[in-house]
Amino acid sequence: MKIDDIRVFISSNNYEVSQSFYQDLGFKMDYATEELSIFENGGCTFFLQKTYNQVLNTQLMLQLSVVDINEAFQVISHLKGFDIKYEPIKVEPWGKVIYLWGPSGELWHVTELNKASC
């Protein structure tokens, strides 16, 4: 079996707020159904669901690999009007990371990997 893509389904406690959040973060939104949206950036996609599962979201972690973490931090730090949390850029042996909690509690590891790690 050869896999060409994996897409995650993220639940949201306020669907419209999460839709706005991910668009402001730089994703392009498309409607899939009334209760499901698809977000795309750089050929990478994920689903956002209107349903909410608190237990799932507060355990959920996703890695968002970016080309330029400083640019990502600029975008994140300028997000306004969302109940989100983020930490400063942290340097790790394998690269750099920003921890970003989305509006429904999902935790994104926004990472820029060292060139040697790829």
Binding site: K85, K90, Y99, H109
Partner: peptide
């Protein structure tokens, strides 16, 4: 309160 609202996995990840 922010820390106390985090799950175990998310707490381990947070540097704060």
């Amino acid at each position: 309160a922010d820390c106390q609202s985090l799950s175990e996995a998310h707490c381990l990840t947070s540097s704060q």
